[in-house]
Design a protein around this nucleic acid. Sequence first.
DNA 1: CGTCGATATGTTCGCAGATGCATGTCGGAT
DNA 2: ATCCGACATGCATCTGCGAACATATCGACG
Lengths: 125, 125
Amino acid sequence: MKLLPHIRIWLSTDFAQDVIGTGRYRLLRTIGELGSLSAAAEQLGISYRKAWDDLKKAEKSIGCRLISKSRGGSGGGGKTELTADGIRLIGLYEQFAGKVERFAMETFNTLAKEIGGGQEHDRVP
Amino acid sequence: MKLLPHIRIWLSTDFAQDVIGTGRYRLLRTIGELGSLSAAAEQLGISYRKAWDDLKKAEKSIGCRLISKSRGGSGGGGKTELTADGIRLIGLYEQFAGKVERFAMETFNTLAKEIGGGQEHDRVP
DNA sequence: CGTCGATATGTTCGCAGATGCATGTCGGAT
DNA sequence: ATCCGACATGCATCTGCGAACATATCGACG
């Protein structure tokens, strides 16, 4: 009965669930680092289509813009950067998720020591 | 930017994910209370088929039996009760999930006060 | 030994979400 | 003015999951 905790953390609003989770957090963070949505999608190994959809859903859920986009530029490229709201959002998520995950690990280890001292029985066929 | 946290807590093993979450926790708990899988399914508003599948998956993931079943009896009825492992599992989940959720709420409130002091900008169309 | 209700399991159908393909659009740099 | 690559979006398709239906099996009790 060797168990480990596995937690999925989301931020939601009153009127829409699933504003941001680990996937969208990573996406926003990578966009911020690379300055490009398509480059971020490539680095994360997801299609541009999906990345764009995720972004749109996140913005619709939270109700404000998370990135500011532009087109054209040297070689036709555009640039994309996080808005102030976007930066605040990933900062909040990062800190929150980190604290909760750390707490969960500690708590689980303590509890498992107290409760899970037993051995396995009745192995399933 | 009024956000709230939304957490899903699972227990997993090294070799299989998703042993138990809120749904299966409720199912096991109700089985323990009512002494019947079909009665539990009915009370929870899910089909017997789904309840049975969930149970099977949980047992396969964790690798040991969670309930002991019998058939026949007065009026043909059987009885179903949690094994010692099953009882330990829901106890562990209950305590763990409770602590983590409480911690998450407190932590989020603190963080939101620190970070989320801003107003909304760039309302999405 | 027949009944009855609960366990046990296969099978099919429908649908939401993901994936992939194709195409349109924009604007700075040259 | 043209070009180029990244933003933007529609559309067809695929796929996995859950719901619903159907049915077999078991065994104490009377």
